[in-house]
Amino acid sequence: MLTSNPAGFWIRFFALILDGIFMFIVIGIIATIVYGQFYIERFTVLDTFDFLYHLLLPVFWYGYTVGKKVLGVRIARLDGEKVGLGTMLMRNVVAGLVYALTFGIAVIVSAFMVGLREDSRSVHDFIAGTYVTYNPPEELDNVYGNDHY
């Protein structure tokens, strides 16, 4: 359970904002093409793109989303393995259920955990066995002594 160079609250917060802006623009462009307007107030199939973005992009891009890549941080597993679909399902879906079942209280607890813990791990990090780091995949190979990336 080694965390190396963990990312704190503000960098993770700004990465989330950048991801939100990126997905708003992408979904807006697609909505304009499909529906003829940039913003759709009702739930559409386009809303699943945001879910799939946060679920699948880190699996295929070594823990990065666009916002995390721009800011130089990424999601990493504690055991040094590459994040997979199961890890991201735990991180996004199971943790999302925990956040919903606690009526958002766990979200507030998570924010404090990231800001106050030395390893900057949140509730969803504990559920999935992950953390967010500044280290690129190559540096983690040196830390863990493996060739998973």
Score class of each variant (00 low, 15 high):
63 G>V: 01
88 M>V: 10
90 M>K: 15
85 L>C: 07
89 L>T: 15
68 K>V: 02
99 Y>W: 07
91 R>Q: 10
62 Y>S: 12
69 K>L: 11
68 K>Q: 13
90 M>P: 01
96 G>N: 02
87 T>M: 08
89 L>N: 05
71 L>F: 10
70 V>M: 13
64 Y>A: 05
85 L>Y: 12
68 K>S: 08
77 R>C: 14
66 V>S: 01
83 V>W: 02
58 P>Y: 01
87 T>L: 06
73 V>I: 15
82 K>V: 14
64 Y>R: 08
82 K>P: 09
78 L>E: 15
76 A>P: 06
60 F>G: 12
84 G>K: 04
63 G>S: 02
96 G>F: 01
68 K>C: 02
90 M>G: 08
67 G>S: 11
93 V>S: 03
58 P>K: 03
78 L>G: 07
61 W>L: 12
64 Y>T: 09
99 Y>R: 05
68 K>W: 01
91 R>T: 04
73 V>R: 00
86 G>H: 04
86 G>S: 12
85 L>M: 13
77 R>Y: 06
63 G>Y: 00
64 Y>H: 13
72 G>S: 11
90 M>V: 02
72 G>A: 08
85 L>R: 10
92 N>S: 05
92 N>G: 01
83 V>T: 14
85 L>Q: 09
93 V>D: 00
61 W>I: 08
61 W>M: 11
65 T>S: 15
59 V>P: 06
70 V>A: 10
71 L>M: 11
82 K>D: 09
64 Y>S: 08
60 F>M: 12
79 D>Q: 08
87 T>E: 11
69 K>D: 11
89 L>K: 03
62 Y>I: 03
88 M>C: 13
66 V>M: 07
81 E>W: 03
80 G>M: 07
89 L>C: 11
95 A>D: 00
91 R>M: 05
97 L>S: 08
80 G>K: 03
78 L>K: 14
91 R>C: 02
87 T>S: 12
63 G>N: 01
86 G>L: 09
77 R>H: 05
58 P>A: 03
68 K>E: 05
93 V>K: 00
74 R>E: 14
66 V>W: 06
90 M>C: 11
66 V>G: 02
68 K>A: 02
73 V>P: 02
99 Y>I: 11
97 L>M: 14
